[in-house]
Design a protein around this nucleic acid. Structure first.
Lengths: 231, 231
DNA sequence: TGTACATCAGTGAACGCGCGTTCACTGATGTAC
DNA sequence: TGTACATCAGTGAACGCGCGTTCACTGATGTAC
């Protein structure tokens, strides 16, 4: 860390969203610049924490002058919370995919297919997942709170899905949430391990996938016994 | 975030380790300053991420001039890795406490006592646990690597402890590690929830504690079935 | 024990730099007539 | 359809500030004799 704000990553040309394209409305162009700010933030956070990004840096990456940043966001924190919302959309999509999978099979989704869907979503939306994992316990409380809220929602949705499984039909809401919480926990750890593995070497997720599947099986076995051991 | 490097936290007087105390050897005084740098780093990271700390800020908090920082650490990164090592000592102590508890009872430790030990350790070493949770997936790769290495070690130690339980004596090393991994995961989540709860309101950990205990029970039930369902 | 010298934790001035934010501006796009 | 005016995304100069790091220094502590 010779200078704390240096970015060691390759120079990557700025998005040049500010370039005048003609034949595109002013508001459309504004939208593109806004999206560029969000995209470049995600890209920059791959290597570092959000709190260490500067406004000037993000603006430069998006191809605008620092002062133009304020046309889109009131502050870096404002930008950060928006990035959380965008990334969470991806997480919710992952859950929806799982639900769709369940519907087409018209059966309890297997552990294998659930993990496979997650792996695919992580591959397709690496930056978003990286942001969520990194900032979940990061240094900006507003962002932590936003992620926490969304994750709770996610757990609740999964609990509802679980309640539709015949074997779990008689479970109480609290127990369902507990199980859902445990499963989400296993999946989040799987995501973190995948992302760290991808960073280091070529992306061979097979070992992480296999371990996560086995952990989920262990949790499901626990759920099976739970029914009989708890009231 | 009006200025990214401002610290909003109360002013707290600097440690004044540099004060000449007489009757204390030079090396002892150096040690105290070094410890002050480590302590103040932990204190500052309670609110923000390590990557957003500046050398000048830490030096000021420790009561020395910025240039004197280099008498103790080569860089902020060097300081950060040292903080990881210190914090991990606390985590290992937690495991040792658990093991001692197991020895005095001469029995399988109950879920309740394991969680109680963790809760107590978190209360006594809040700053260290906060640092580990915050920086585990944080923006400094060297620190991530250091924490990851220590956590793997921690899982392996727990797996060895598990192998001493008669019911698990015939388990393979891989399965034991899988179970240990799952349990550590539950415990880490409990720590994160406790710390976030402590930050917001008064520290009522009872709900977090109860939920974590029930999650551990679910995992242990899964382990019981694992034996019969897998080879 | 006393003296002369070496060590070294901490000091303070100085540097060039990137930071967030202000301000007055430009000129293409959009709108009212 | 043409014209006159309003809007507003992006510009560029300027500000004061905290940053990491260099350097020569001070003076108490430690050591060799």
């Amino acid at each position: 860390m010779s200078r704390s704000r240096n970015h060691a990553s390759p120079p990557r040309p700025p998005t040049r969203s500010a370039a005048v394209d003609a034949s595109e409305s002013r508001s459309a162009r504004k939208g593109r610049t806004r999206q560029a700010l969000l995209d470049e933030t995600l890209a920059l956070v791959a290597d570092r924490s959000f709190a260490s990004l500067s406004l000037r840096e993000v603006a430069k990456a998006a191809g605008i002058v620092p002062t133009a940043f304020y046309r889109h966001f009131a502050s870096m924190e404002d930008l950060g919370v928006t990035v959380v919302e965008d990334s969470m959309r991806v997480l919710r999509k992952t859950l929806r995919e799982g639900r769709r999978d369940l519907a087409t099979r018209n059966a309890v989704p297997t552990v294998k297919s659930s993990v496979a869907i997650l792996v695919q979503q992580v591959r397709e939306n690496e930056a978003q997942f990286r942001f969520l994992i990194r900032e979940q316990h990061g240094g900006v409380s507003e962002i932590r709170r936003a992620i926490d809220t969304e994750l709770r929602l996610f757990v609740k949705e999964l609990a509802i899905d679980l309640s539709r499984i015949p074997e779990l039909a008689h479970w109480g809401a609290e127990d369902l949430e507990l199980a859902a919480d445990l499963m989400v926990n296993v999946l989040l750890q799987a995501v973190a391990e995948m992302l760290e593995a991808n960073r280091r070497d070529n992306g061979d997720d097979r070992e992480v996938t296999a371990r996560s599947e086995r952990k989920l099986v262990m949790v499901i076995l626990g759920m099976n016994s739970w029914r009989t051991s708890q009231q």
